[in-house]
């Protein structure tokens, strides 16, 4: 892929995002479809995101423990694991899991609807397909990824507590106090805010790839695949951007 084609694609996606905002603020509002998409994107992704969050918390704790014990800093494990999960691992892992599950789902669904003329059928039925299909999915992803991240963080912290207790006894109060005492708004707020952008990017890219898919079954596969790849890459790029902005603002 040449630089010019990447820039051209970025321009097209930006215009697509502009249309999402334009159409999103104009009635009629597709509230019922939005709620359904929140259910699909949020609730149905919860088992996957929860499981990965649990494994992430447990593995981090078990891997960190020998090193921390070596330096006599095992009492710092809750803080280190907590900070890592809340600031980076929780948002990133959740973003990647949602990009994989939801991004591919949106890309494949919309592209197959395009191929089988279902999107045209919606237009003929007096429905604005962009508003009904794209705006609702982008908004649902934007709202649900932060919720999933917070839940994944909580499950990850619980797993960290379980991990610590495999080698000794730590009370829930002590574990919680150690994390909460070290956390500031500067730690939590940027981590939560960036997940809104993760969700927006995942929804937007999935919809863009699906809505403008090539005709034919090959186009469906390509749309699903590129939605995952581009969505995951967007999560990393936005995370890098969030870290740079937080550093510039002196939040870290």
């Amino acid at each position: 892929m040449s630089v010019s084609s990447i820039l051209a694609e970025t321009g097209t996606v930006t215009r697509f995002a502009g249309r999402v905002f334009r159409e999103g603020f104009r009635p009629r509002f597709e509230v019922q479809e939005l709620l359904y998409q929140c259910y699909v994107i949020g609730y149905q992704s919860l088992p996957l995101v929860g499981l990965t969050g649990f494994i992430m918390g447990l593995v981090l704790t078990l891997r960190l423990r020998p090193t921390m014990v070596q330096f006599g800093a095992d009492s710092w494990i809750p803080v280190m694991v907590g900070m890592t999960i809340i600031q980076e691992m929780g948002p990133i892992i959740t973003g990647l899991m949602v990009a994989g599950k939801v991004g591919s789902n949106i890309g494949a669904e919309l592209s197959s609807m395009r191929v089988t003329e279902q999107i045209d059928a919606m237009s003929v039925s007096g429905t604005n397909p962009f508003k009904y299909l794209v705006v609702t999915r982008v908004l649902a992803a934007t709202l649900m990824v932060p919720v999933l991240t917070v839940l994944s963080d909580a499950i990850g912290l619980f797993a960290a507590y379980v991990g610590i207790n495999t080698n000794g006894v730590t009370t829930v109060a002590l574990f919680t106090n150690q994390i909460v005492a070290r956390l500031t708004f500067g730690d939590v707020l940027p981590a939560v805010i960036k997940t809104f952008f993760f969700g927006f990017a995942i929804g937007l890219i999935g919809c863009y790839k699906g809505y403008y898919a090539d005709k034919g079954t090959e186009g469906v596969g390509r749309a699903a695949n590129s939605a995952v790849v581009a969505g995951s890459l967007a999560v990393f790029l936005l995370d890098l951007l969030a870290v740079l902005i937080s550093s510039l603002l002196g939040l870290y």
């Binding site: 089988t116 003329e117 279902q118 045209d120 059928a121």
Partner: peptide, 9 residues
């Protein structure tokens, strides 16, 4: 009436 029927799957 669409050639592919265009029923919502």
């Amino acid at each position: 009436l669409f050639q592919s029927n265009a029923l919502y799957d």
